[in-house]
Design a protein around this nucleic acid. Structure first.
Lengths: 194, 194
DNA sequence: ACCTGAACACCGTTCAAGT
DNA sequence: ACCTGAACACCGTTCAAGT
């Protein structure tokens, strides 16, 4: 993407994000990344500690969009949460294997704008603890799981390993059904196990 | 594990499961598997089509336990579902990286005993379609997401990449909270988006 | 300070050739 | 029918040496 020399951490992450978006996680190797930047593989390690850390950087980038573009907070909490969930899903879908990269990064270390933290911010205005925190985690799991399945399926279809199938199977409607189920289950005090 | 020659598909899967359970997914390479079986790497490909297919076989093994040991069905559906969810979680936790292997396999191809199908069988006795089917998927995502996070964290802690932390963070109680939220949200007709 | 060149220790998969 | 030997085309990471 940037064919000139003089690497920087930013250029490395930019180029990596471009490879991820265009060709997916399987195509994102340190060696391929180096060749895109017209540089030897070892040069990358001056700017980034490891491939794991690079993936964490990519996850921050992917999540920075829905984190900044937060919808107007004058809405009732449940509507606000639906918009947030949709915004997170859209951001993950915008990059090939986005959900897998974010899931991996979340396991690796806390992220600046984790989905659970974003949702918790809103959920805390409507629920007591620990319901708000646990509910945010449950919602975040659902979002990442749903998108990861959708994208995994898309990757395998692209590789010709599974049938292409109808695109309607993973519709926004279905996604919102799950969000609605979780939100409805949360907004009842009896949800806590006794 | 089986040091004698005369390979078979079963012996290959057995040995692979042993490596997975003992050392995790990162240690499960075809070459390492071959050396465990005292055989050349190429020999494996006579008995299994690819590493992907081998992982799918492992997923079937992991899930065969909670699928057969189905709890008595004379219970009310919600109690039955809680026991099923716990049984699936236990089976996934029994093998290192179990949730990740099952998630990958589910993306690859339909499994004999997929968590969603097992849960759907019970859920269909209490809900109309498509609520039962979508609800089963939502629950399955939650279970896999919860256990995957727990296991990913454990793997990274084992590698010394993240702090060990208190084990109480991922307790059964927290898991059941999420299950309860989803079940409660499902058992209301208003859960469907309008 | 930043990058090259070259190596180390690995991968999954294929396939002629042997038995 | 089943396995070996050897290759093909890759990996992530390190590190002396250059500029």
């Amino acid at each position: 993407v940037a064919l000139s020399k003089d690497l920087s951490r930013e250029k490395v992450v930019d180029a990596a994000l471009a490879i991820l978006a265009d060709h997916g996680l399987a195509a994102l190797s340190m060696r391929q990344l180096a060749s895109t930047l017209a540089v030897q593989p070892g040069a990358l390690y001056w700017h980034v500690e490891s491939k794991q850390e690079l993936l964490a950087q990519l996850a921050e980038r992917i999540l920075s969009d829905p984190a900044t573009a937060t919808p107007r907070s004058d809405l009732p909490p449940d509507q606000h949460l639906r918009l947030q969930a949709l915004a997170i899903r859209t951001a993950l879908l915008a990059v090939r294997d986005g959900a897998e990269v974010v899931s991996f990064a979340l396991a690796l270390r806390p992220l600046e704008h984790s989905p659970a933290a974003m949702l918790h911010h809103t959920l805390a205005t409507a629920l007591p603890e620990p319901d708000a925190a646990w509910g945010a985690q449950t919602l975040a799991h659902y979002i990442l799981g749903e998108v990861a399945e959708e994208q995994n399926h898309a990757e395998l279809a692209r590789a010709g390993i599974v049938a292409g199938e109808r695109a309607a199977a993973y519709s926004t409607e279905r996604f919102l059904f799950g969000v609605q189920v979780i939100l409805h289950g949360l907004t009842d005090a009896n949800a806590r196990p006794t």
